[in-house]
């Protein structure tokens, strides 16, 4: 088991957002989390790499074994070294070029020599199809290009797992495809991925496991086939009915 999380609880004030979520991810898994807006998907991802502090929960991540509430600074740093994060609204460093966005974490975070970091960074940008944009600032890039820089920034770190939080939700429809293509490609290369998305095609074609979350709990999980063709839970069925095109089920 590469990443195992048990019993995450998280409240904001009175609102309990995560009500005891468990999650197991094997090396090479591509896990998609589905669920209605507000069900706690973002919060779950953010708790995993400590952008939010969980109220309760436990994580085993390779050789690191921590309580999510009381983790030391060192443990947090250690876990963050293994995880990369791709944000819904990209969160690129606006004062840095595309290449600098990718190398910042390598040079400053990982202490890799600048020349070597540049090589790694260029390769990562080549991979996402941005060979022409090394020196472009985020403001000069389209949303799709920015998100691809975001993915290159994650890939370049060579993390054990990449977390994606709705990576295409902020994009114009015509730009979604280019980002999904890149994601499919890195999935094919064996990257372990945990992806929150509303792109059902990605879940169907790329994921080997789909998790359906609602109201702070995992309602159901299984292979894409299990979830899309014969969901067990009423809540899952209702959700799918709402988000899938009428005739979609038949094409799976």
């Amino acid at each position: 088991m590469m990443l195992e999380i048990t019993n995450i609880h998280k409240s904001f004030g009175e609102n309990e957002i995560l009500k005891g979520v468990d999650l197991k991810i094997e090396k090479g898994d591509v896990v998609v989390i589905l669920g209605p807006s507000g069900s706690g998907k973002t919060t779950l991802l953010r708790c995993i790499n400590f952008l939010e502090k969980a109220d309760q929960g436990h994580a085993i991540f390779g050789d690191i074994d921590v309580n999510l509430k009381t983790a030391s600074k060192k443990a947090i740093h250690g876990i963050r070294q293994k995880i990369a994060f791709v944000f819904q609204n990209y969160n690129l460093f606006n004062n840095k070029t595309a290449l600098e966005n990718v190398t910042e974490g390598l040079v400053i975070g990982r202490k890799i020599a600048k020349a070597e970091a540049n090589e790694i960074g260029k390769k990562a940008l080549d991979k996402v199809g941005l060979s022409e944009k090394y020196n472009a600032y985020p403001i000069e890039l389209s949303g799709g290009q920015q998100q691809r820089v975001g993915i290159a920034r994650a890939v370049a770190l060579n993390p054990d797992i990449i977390l994606f939080d709705e990576p295409t939700s902020a994009l114009d429809p015509e730009l979604v495809g280019e980002v999904l293509t890149v994601m499919k490609q890195i999935a094919k290369e064996g990257t372990t991925m945990l992806v929150v998305t509303h792109e059902m095609s990605f879940a169907k074609d790329v994921a080997n496991r789909v998790i359906f979350m609602d109201a702070g709990v995992v309602v159901e999980e299984g292979s894409p086939k299990d979830i899309f063709v014969k969901p067990k839970e009423e809540r899952t069925r209702k959700f799918l009915k709402r988000v899938l095109p009428e005739d979609y089920i038949f094409y799976i």
Partner: peptide
Amino acid sequence: QFEAAVCVGL
């Protein structure tokens, strides 16, 4: 941007 920075190890 701050969150992205600490995520890449700053």
